[in-house]
Design a protein around this nucleic acid. Structure first.
Lengths: 194, 194
DNA sequence: GCATTGATGTACCACGTGGTACATCAATAA
DNA sequence: TTATTGATGTACCACGTGGTACATCAATGC
């Protein structure tokens, strides 16, 4: 009952390997993992990884694309009820991003950020794409572009501190205060007229 | 006219190598530099590096200590006239930190931050020490601890973005706005009664 | 003066890395 | 049926890495 031709099988095999590789990279929290170790973990061989992807760098690129897809799906606006306020959205995003289970993804993302500042063009694209996704997401909950940008910068800074110290509370409070102490304007309230 | 004994000479040689190594690491923007390449740049040999420092990791530790000293000296409160406001201090720090000439130091610092979140205990110490230095520095110009902490988080986030994008302006504006839009409290004004 | 100690060079080593050559075997195409 | 193509394993290779062994030579201590 073989329904797949050889070529189709090739794609599914490649896809399965890609999926498994991404999982391992997430688990490792970095892309700096030797083909040997990766292959051992996904129960394949370096030989096959190179066969299907053409080398280490192409594999990394494929993983980045796959990760982008995965993250894009995860940070869609429709995961929040309409009318949620910006502070609420950020609080939820904070909890989600710093959740222990998500630590691998966070580490991997930061590893790509590092590659971006180290000169990797593809990693820089990744960073910029992620940034836009978050900005657009937040803009769904507040029309104030500069406020959104500030909030995201703060979020990013808090995330760095969280990664190093492991303290989720501190960042949560910082984000909270950012909106509490913010005076008279309509910061944080979602008064879009859409 | 040899005034130095052999032992004294050993220390000065070691110090010179350490100084030169730090400079090279800064130039490279990372500690991930092979002994061979480092040795070639400082016109010494891997052999001698190991001779004087005992190995790669001890060398790295020594460099971290040296960098800490250097940074501590650079971020003392007395580099600002008393009475300077917090926003002014932050603006100056921003210009200084993101100055093209200082890019190497910034990169190296971020490389250590990465090592910190990757589990290096020494690098985590470095991060925490730097954090305290900055907090204490800023507290000289505003008594509001939580404000200072928020500002520093924001600063950190903006720095990350700067590193990746290379845009100094964006972060500068973000910091500026953080104090502009901040409502009725005495944010940013230095009203200490010391 | 002679023994010791430290500085330095040369040659080496083991190991992990990404990647290749070649062989084998099953599935497919003709 | 036979020729071709793709999947896979085994063995290898070149190279960069941190580190060591050993020899040499000058300075120092007695």
């Amino acid at each position: 009952m073989k329904r797949q031709t050889k070529k189709q099988q090739r794609y599914t095999t490649r896809d399965r390997m890609l999926e498994a590789s991404l999982a391992v990279f997430i688990e490792a929290g970095t892309l700096d993992l030797s083909l040997d170790r990766l292959a051992a973990t996904i129960e394949s061989s370096k030989r096959m990884l190179i066969h299907y992807f053409g080398g280490k760098k192409p594999l990394e690129r494929a993983v980045m694309v796959r990760l982008e897809e995965s993250l894009r799906a995860q940070f869609r606006a429709d995961s929040f009820p309409p009318g949620t306020s910006l502070p609420e959205v950020l609080a939820t995003l904070w909890q989600r991003t710093t959740h222990p289970k998500a630590r691998g993804v966070l580490l991997l993302t930061m590893d790509l950020t590092r590659r971006a500042w180290s000169g990797s063009k593809r990693a820089k694209e990744f960073y910029e794409k992620q940034w836009r996704i978050w900005i657009n997401l937040l803009l769904e909950f507040s029309p104030d572009g500069t406020l959104v940008e500030s909030a995201l910068q703060l979020f990013q800074g808090a995330m760095l501190t969280y990664l190093v110290t492991g303290d989720r509370e501190n960042g949560r409070r910082t984000l909270e205060r950012f909106f509490l102490n913010s005076g008279s304007t309509n910061r944080g309230s979602n008064d879009q007229t859409s």
